[in-house]
Computed example of a mutant assay.
Amino acid sequence: MAVTSSDDASEELDEETERQTRKATGVAIRQLARRGMSRWELEQLLTKREIAPEVFGPELDRLEKLGVIDDASLAATLAFTQHSRKGLGRTVIEQDLKRRHIDPELIEAALEDIGEDDELERATELAVKRIGQLSGYDDETARRRLHGFLARKGYTSDIVRQAMDAAFAGRRSRGGSGVRFQ
């Protein structure tokens, strides 16, 4: 029985789809091994690699079902590490997760673990550490710089104020007056 040209074309198309699917899987697995990525980030990457959405969509669905792609886990991990290691506040963490196009409900769930007490404690640790680096400045300049530092880390103004009060109380108790004259 002879193979017709339409059979050859569909066979070539199937082979190309299979090759593209393997490529999509390989790219996704390698990227996930390097760092956590959201599904949206993987979609963007695969689009840049010129893999058709019809090909990578089902493959990403399969990887999601296997638990290889897990936006909820990624959001929780990022929230924890960014808060505990980098000292970032909820606002900056939320912005980062939104930038990665993680579902708002997953972001909310990930940020629930960071309570206001945790934020205040971490902000106070950062403020106390930073105040030592500002010992050469007068109180007003040190306050301004410390406020900017904590605000950039994503802490609310209420938490920034409380952390600064604690840091300056410690600075005064150690006898640091700010400017030192020689």
Rank of each mutant, 00 (worst) to 15 (best):
E54H: 09
R99H: 12
Q44Y: 13
R122S: 02
D139W: 07
L60H: 02
V128S: 15
G115A: 05
A76S: 10
G36M: 12
V160P: 04
I114M: 01
D103L: 10
G89S: 01
D139C: 01
A109I: 00
I102T: 06
L32P: 00
A110E: 10
E94M: 11
R99M: 10
A79C: 09
R35M: 06
I114K: 05
R145F: 03
A52W: 01
T91V: 08
D139Q: 13
V128G: 09
Q133N: 07
L63S: 05
A123H: 06
L150M: 02
A123L: 13
A72D: 10
L60E: 01
T47W: 13
Q82H: 11
S38Y: 15
V55H: 13
T91I: 12
R35C: 01
E50L: 14
G115Q: 09
E64F: 06
A52V: 00
V160F: 00
W40M: 06
S135K: 15
E108F: 05
A151F: 13
E94F: 03
Y137Q: 09
K153M: 05
I159N: 02
A33P: 07
L60S: 04
E64C: 06
Q133S: 11
E121W: 05
D139N: 11
Q95W: 10
D103V: 06
Y155C: 09
Y137F: 12
G87T: 12
E94Y: 07
D61Q: 08
L42F: 05
S38D: 10
H83F: 15
K86W: 06
G132Y: 07
Q95N: 12
E121F: 08
D96K: 14
G57I: 00
R34F: 03
E105Q: 14
L78A: 06
S84C: 08
Y137D: 06
E108A: 13
D118A: 05
L126H: 03
P53W: 14
T124W: 00
L106F: 09
G136M: 09
D113P: 01
R49N: 12
L150F: 03
T141D: 08
G67D: 13
S135V: 02
S84L: 08
I102S: 08
K86H: 14
T156E: 13
G115S: 14
G87A: 05
H83N: 10
K129R: 11
L63C: 09
S135L: 04
L126P: 00
R145Q: 07
G67A: 13
P104I: 00
D118H: 04
R145W: 00
L126A: 10
G132T: 10
S135P: 01
T47D: 15
R152T: 07
T156H: 12
R130C: 02
L106C: 05
M37S: 11
E116G: 03
D61W: 07
E43S: 13
I159Q: 03
K86L: 10
K48F: 08
E43R: 10
L60F: 11
G148M: 12
D71N: 07
L134C: 02
R145Y: 00
R143L: 03
P58A: 14
I51F: 00
R35D: 09
E64N: 06
T77P: 01
G148V: 13
T47A: 15
R99E: 15
